[in-house]
């Protein structure tokens, strides 16, 4: 706010100089777009409805959105549904009558909010979907191409496990069976693994709601049955801490190749360095947040009918391995400036 006033004051002063003192030798010219932009952003509001807070993904996104809002002088608010889809639906319902300018929604799945999001757009609210999109497209979507994550992970495992002396046995630790995120990723795995004769998928098990304890016990059971297990495909880094713990206890850390994915937070680099996993696909939360901020700005400036343009931005993926981990910068909340 202060920044904005200051900027406006400076702009006014400069402008009067420009008119009054055109005789001055070195001319300073104000960017004609900026005043209008800043003025138009004032008192606009953006609301973020995440599935959860308190994990690196959402905290990272939210922090960057909040920073931009603070800088540009619009309102930003988080309404946390706290893993409760019904609560999220309630929130969006009441937001439709509150009418913020932009609604950023992290969908829990493909369907739950679809109809509400359409109603929100019909009511004149720009809806940006984050991380998971419903089957109804709205003004914008920012998130990873999840199938591609799966394919990237599976390729890494294939590379490792089809070599000389490898059993080719692979364990897949999926997320909740009903989660599209996990289902898309499984699809990516299948795209790669199904065509490969040397790979044998010994077990596909759900870790429940991404429970690391469950990942651990499944891994232990499968290791009992298949001591020559070669690779594990995990859906999410936090879950695979359990996977790694099981391997460490069995003394198999160096025998089994673990590939996982996540937002690229500090855990990702730590996991590579401590040999919890050997391959990591990051969907780069700060990058996603930047995309999101751009779409928010675009939406705030959009004068057309809501929903007349629909933009999908898939996040470029980054692979972390022991070889490149030192060149990668794993972000932390502190590092998001």
């Amino acid at each position: 706010m202060k920044l904005f006033t200051k900027a406006a004051m400076t702009a006014v002063t400069l402008l009067s100089f420009a008119i009054g003192g055109s005789a001055v030798a070195q001319q300073s010219i104000n960017d004609p777009a900026r005043d209008a932009l800043y003025a138009s952003l004032k008192d606009r509001s953006v609301v973020f409805v995440p599935v959860f807070m308190g994990l690196d993904l959402t905290e990272g996104w939210s922090k960057m959105m909040a920073r931009q809002a603070e800088k540009l002088g619009y309102k930003y608010e988080v309404r946390n549904s706290n893993f409760n889809t019904a609560a999220g639906a309630q929130t969006i319902t009441s937001l439709i009558s509150e009418k913020p300018d932009v609604l950023v929604v992290q969908n829990p799945d493909v369907q739950s909010y679809a109809r509400l999001l359409k109603r929100a757009e019909d009511a004149g609210i720009h809806v940006l979907q984050l991380n998971m999109k419903t089957n109804i497209l709205t003004t914008g979507f920012v998130g990873a191409d999840v199938v591609e994550i799966g394919e990237t992970q599976a390729n890494a495992v294939v590379n490792h496990c089809t070599g000389e002396g490898k059993s080719g046995k692979v364990l897949i630790l999926a997320g909740p069976p009903t989660s599209p995120f996990s289902a898309y990723m499984l699809h990516g795995y299948e795209n790669v693994l199904n065509g490969n004769d040397k790979i044998q998928v010994v077990s596909v098990q759900s870790t429940g709601a991404y429970e690391s304890a469950k990942a651990k016990s499944i891994t232990q059971v499968v290791l009992q049955q298949h001591p020559d297990l070669c690779g594990i495909l995990g859906v999410w880094d936090n879950t695979d801490i359990g996977t790694a713990a099981a391997l460490a206890e069995a003394g198999k850390t160096n025998d089994v190749f673990v590939s996982t994915s996540g937002g690229g937070g500090e855990l990702s680099c730590k996991g590579i360095r401590e040999n919890l996993w050997q391959h990591y696909v990051s969907y780069d939360v700060p990058g996603q947040a930047r995309d999101l901020n751009d779409l928010i700005l675009a939406a705030l400036q959009d004068k057309n009918e809501v929903g007349s343009t629909k933009t999908i931005l898939y996040t470029p993926l980054i692979e972390f391995t022991a070889d490149n981990v030192d060149q990668q910068s794993c972000w932390t909340l502190e590092s998001i400036k």
């Binding site: 959860f52 429970e211 690391s212 304890a213 990942a215 359990g242 790694a244």
Partner: peptide, 16 residues
């Protein structure tokens, strides 16, 4: 015991 075993504590298990 659980935390030591899986090397972390996911406090979200309350939701389960």
């Amino acid at each position: 015991v659980l935390a030591a075993s899986s090397a972390n504590m996911d406090t979200r298990i309350f939701n389960l």
